[in-house]
């Protein structure tokens, strides 16, 4: 099993590799009200992970361990939390993060056909990233733009009323 630190099959430690980013995370956590009480510190875990993912793009084991150490938590607790919340990922994601909304409103208006078309054209399963790390495909549940259903998000760009036919164009736009 890979630890997620090795995106190219080469092992490396994100924390050591990117001292600048590490410092940024370190400063963020230092600014929190961390004390000796593990239970209290845990209350800062999720925001620290949000920040860490924001900085590093994903949360490989070295980053998890770093956060665990800073908050005096067990690595297993940190991993338990990361693996629980779908927002967190311990694998690198693509440059273009394609999210197909499969919330109810989008579903009844044909989101599945859109998702299937993305899967077919990108040769990806839901939750996977292309080997060149250009595209990641995921489904998500309701971005709150149900009037535009079915909705697709590419990074922060929202596409509304998407049909299977539009999928190829959306992919082509990502250059």
């Amino acid at each position: 099993m890979s630890c997620g630190d090795c995106p190219d099959g080469r092992k490396f430690d994100l924390i050591k590799e990117f001292p600048e980013k590490t410092k940024q995370l370190n400063d963020f956590i230092d600014a929190l009200d961390i004390g000796p009480d593990r239970n209290r510190n845990r209350g800062f875990l999720i925001e620290s992970l949000h920040e860490a993912q924001h900085i590093f793009g994903y949360l490989p084991r070295s980053v998890q361990q770093f956060v665990a150490d800073k908050l005096h938590l067990y690595l297993s607790e940190v991993y338990g939390v990361i693996s629980f919340y779908s927002y967190f990922t311990d694998r690198p994601v693509g440059k273009y993060k394609i999210s197909v909304c499969t919330g109810t409103a989008c579903f009844v208006r044909g989101a599945n056909a859109v998702l299937e078309e993305f899967k077919r054209l990108l040769v990806l399963e839901n939750g996977e990233t292309t080997p060149d790390r250009k595209f990641s495909l995921a489904s998500l549940r309701c971005v709150g733009a149900c009037s535009l259903a079915p909705v697709v998000m590419v990074n922060d760009q929202v596409y509304g009323k998407v049909t299977a036919k539009m999928v190829a164009d959306i992919i082509n736009e990502c250059k």
């Binding site: 999720i46 925001e47 779908s86």
Partner: peptide, 8 residues
């Protein structure tokens, strides 16, 4: 403020 992280 506290943030969720994607869990219904």
């Amino acid at each position: 403020l506290k943030y969720g992280a994607g869990a219904f």
